[in-house]
Write a protein that binds this DNA or RNA. Structure first.
Length: 739
DNA sequence: ACGCTTCCAGTTTTT
DNA sequence: CTGGAAGCGT
């Protein structure tokens, strides 16, 4: 154990060795958070003789969970099994699977993803005769999900929203939606946490059992927990009070998804007498990069406050490049990467970040053009693809034939001549008889409205029945073969024979490899054959973020997906007001979260950062101009290396012809006539920063766009509103600083 | 019931 | 620009 402790700095040691009771670790970016967490787990087991099965460690991704498991295993020489390391969702699922009846569920309940939710919501809308134009399913899903995050059930929601007509309708949908979920024996993602809390609250025995079972609770990324997760942790830790949370309020970027930053901000009040330890030494970035990140984040009010420092060298300045178009931006990135490769860099050293997935297109194009291998992270994951979801829906249906949502997805996929009229009738009969659509399909010939479709329906039923037998007898991968073969799902794509359809076939084939790999892993870990249930569960709870970032390729991803990763060289693209920060966040006053996102981006970099914006961007088929991001101006110019000091904006500066502009009177020709009460001393504005508005006697008002050099040689570049761009000697220019 | 056309919306997304 | 959904004609 000593060899583990030796490697830690004082603060990390304190964190790892701290005694029982609540502990809050405020761990800055790159401060060795995972090392602390894993060391703590190893310490508890090896020094404090804590049983691994009484440790509950919660992470936000499966990847992080795996990493902790592996690292702890390695530290302890392997062979130790931690049954309770996982994500909030997987841990809750594990608890719920033990006592599903306590909530009126049956064994083997299904998990609904967003797609399933959407279908079910639409069903609920039509059942209630509500217009999906007035109440878009997406919005309803959002409202319901946020409510579950806040532990507001359908009854509470209805009571709270009785005055708002629209919301009272949503309340109705929420109610019917929950009813159907139980009926279909299914839970959505939000239910997993919500129901776990409910189960613990309402059942003394179950609560006591888990409170006793978990002697130590450790939570990673605590800043991104929502209210339900907070409550879960609170209940579980009530008895032993050993709650050890690690997080960084400055990296809370999932507020829009229900994360409650107050969980971390108020930890000290919620857990009186808790220990607070700050990890402020950053082992990742150079001093310059860190300073830039610190300068940005210090503009936030809603934070605990901490300043990261680094032992590393100053390093190079933060590079700033102003491109003309998004395509130029992308080629700048590509060329920089090629140059770096000549100097001995590896493709894997590079990451390109952007605010929205749609921005990846131009980046991808430039990289492809320059033959640079890359990989896009996030976006539509493999398991979200339509063709994969179709195959999975068949498998899910085999787990529960009464799951109408899956049945509706596959019954006419591929086309079997079963259309919506038939489906509508089946649905009605199912409601009338209180059975499922599959039961109705089985007895299609006894229902008057289904005579015509009866033959087709019985064909479908016969196929499913055969597959049901196969599901009992065969392994998941053999069952997959049967599904593909009997449903003939590939045929339509083969006939289509387009690039698109061929890639769909490839994906479906790829699914088999995924099944085989999972089955092998499972056998290795548990010595048992992978069950269909376990397979589907792991698929719904896994995401793209679990993918490996190692390899010889450039990683390109959204800033959100970048959290937790690090790269020697980072490109922050699209640093434009309206893109990043996004218009939506500006409109909703959610600037601080955007700024945290910027902080996350910069702190991913080890050696070099390139911040890029462009004057013209084509997004969603619309070309627009955006001003540079305010975050850029928050970094002081002495930390920035301006790659192209004067962009083409010089030539583009227009001569305004307005009567009055910025307190300046001008004539038709654009020449100022007089400036009332103007006085300025030479050198008064020697320390101006980029973005600063200044006034010049001759040129009028303008914005500082660049500064170069220092001391008496310092040059300032100012884009004057009327007179265009001028370069001035800082120590001589008579400039007045404006507010 | 199906396939073709038109229309529309379009952040971020660890589960 | 692009994918998905709704609408319409066969």
């Amino acid at each position: 154990m000593d060899f583990i402790i030796e490697k830690l700095n004082d603060m990390q040691k304190e964190a790892v060795l701290t005694g029982d009771g609540p502990v809050l670790i405020l761990a800055g970016a790159g401060s060795g958070k995972t090392r602390v967490l894993t060391s703590r787990v190893a310490y508890l087991v090896m020094e404090k003789s804590v049983n691994p099965s009484s440790i509950l460690a919660i992470t936000f991704t499966n990847k992080a969970a795996r990493e902790i498991n592996n690292r702890v295993g390695k530290m302890m020489g392997g062979g130790m099994w931690f049954p309770w390391i996982g994500t909030f969702h997987s841990m809750c699922l594990k608890m719920l699977r033990m006592y599903p009846e306590s909530l009126g569920y049956r064994k083997g309940f299904a998990i609904y993803d967003t797609d399933d939710q959407k279908v079910l919501i639409k069903d609920c809308l039509s059942e209630l005769d509500l217009d999906s134009k007035l109440l878009p399913p997406k919005m309803i899903i959002n409202v319901i999900s946020r409510s579950k995050d806040e532990l507001i059930d359908e009854v509470d929601f209805s009571n709270k929203n009785s005055s708002d007509y629209r919301m009272s309708l949503v309340a109705k949908v929420y109610n019917v939606y929950q009813k159907h979920l139980v009926e279909y024996n299914a839970m959505d993602f939000g239910d997993l946490i919500f129901n776990a809390v409910k189960m613990l609250r309402e059942n003394d025995n179950i609560r006591n059992y888990f409170q006793n079972a978990f002697k130590h609770i450790l939570i990673d990324e605590y800043q991104d927990t929502n209210t339900a997760q907070y409550e879960l942790a609170h209940i579980l830790s009530e008895k032993h009070k050993n709650i050890f949370v690690v997080g960084d309020d400055d990296q809370s970027i999932y507020g829009w998804r229900g994360a409650n930053i107050n969980n971390i901000l108020d930890f000290e009040e919620d857990y009186p007498g808790c220990m607070v330890i700050r990890l402020e030494q950053n082992y990742r970035s150079t001093k310059n990069i860190l300073s830039a990140a610190n300068e940005v984040i210090k503009n936030n009010d809603d934070r605990k406050g901490k300043t990261l420092w680094s032992d590393r060298s100053r390093g190079s300045k933060v590079n700033y490049y102003k491109a003309t178009t998004d395509s130029m931006e992308a080629y700048f990135v590509a060329n920089k990467i090629l140059k770096g490769m000549e100097k001995g860099r590896d493709y894997a050293d590079y990451a390109v970040f952007y605010r929205v997935n749609a921005q990846s297109r131009s980046i991808e194009q430039a990289l492809r053009d320059k033959d640079i291998p890359y990989r896009v992270f996030g976006g539509i994951s493999f398991y979200q693809r339509k063709e994969i979801k179709d195959v999975l829906a068949y498998l899910k249906l085999l787990l529960n034939v009464n799951d109408n949502i899956q049945l509706k997805r596959v019954i006419n996929e591929p086309k079997r001549g079963i259309g919506k009229t038939t489906l509508h009738k089946m649905e009605e009969y199912a409601i009338d008889t209180g059975s499922s659509m599959y039961e109705v399909a089985k007895d299609a010939d006894i229902y008057p409205g289904l005579h015509k479709a009866a033959v087709k329906l019985s064909g479908f039923v016969a196929m499913i029945e055969k597959l049901l037998t196969a599901a009992i007898e065969k392994s998941v991968s053999d069952l997959y073969d049967d599904v593909i073969q009997m449903t003939d799902i590939l045929k339509q794509y083969e006939l289509e024979n387009t690039i698109n359809s061929r890639s769909r076939i490839e994906n479906i084939r790829e699914l088999k490899s995924a099944i085989i790999t999972k089955a092998e892993d499972y056998y290795e870990s548990f010595g048992e054959e992978l069950t269909l249930e376990t397979f589907l569960e792991s698929v719904t709870l896994s995401t793209d973020a679990d993918n490996e970032t190692e390899g010889t390729f450039v990683s390109i991803m959204t800033l959100h997906s970048a959290k937790g990763l690090e790269f020697p060289v980072v490109f922050m693209t699209g640093m434009e007001e309206g893109i990043f920060p996004s218009v939506q966040s500006l409109g909703e006053g959610r600037l601080e979260e955007e700024r945290r996102l910027c902080y996350v981006g910069i702190t991913r970099a080890m050696d070099e950062v390139y911040i890029i914006n462009t004057m013209q961007r084509t997004l969603y088929g619309r070309t627009q101009t955006y001003p540079e991001s305010q975050f850029l101006r928050e970094i002081s110019p002495n930390l920035i290396n301006y790659i192209n000091g004067s962009g083409p904006s010089v030539r583009k500066t227009k001569t305004y012809n307005r009567e009055s502009f910025g307190g300046l009177r001008i004539t038709k020709g654009g020449k100022p006539i007089s400036i009332a009460g103007f006085t300025a001393e030479a050198g008064e504005a020697a320390d101006v920063k980029i973005g600063q508005r200044v006034r010049h006697k001759k040129f009028g008002d303008g914005t500082v766009t660049n500064t170069e050099g220092s001391g008496s040689d310092k040059m300032i570049e100012v884009a004057f509103d009327m007179a265009g761009k001028k370069r001035l000697m800082a120590s001589f220019a008579k400039l007045k600083i404006l507010d």
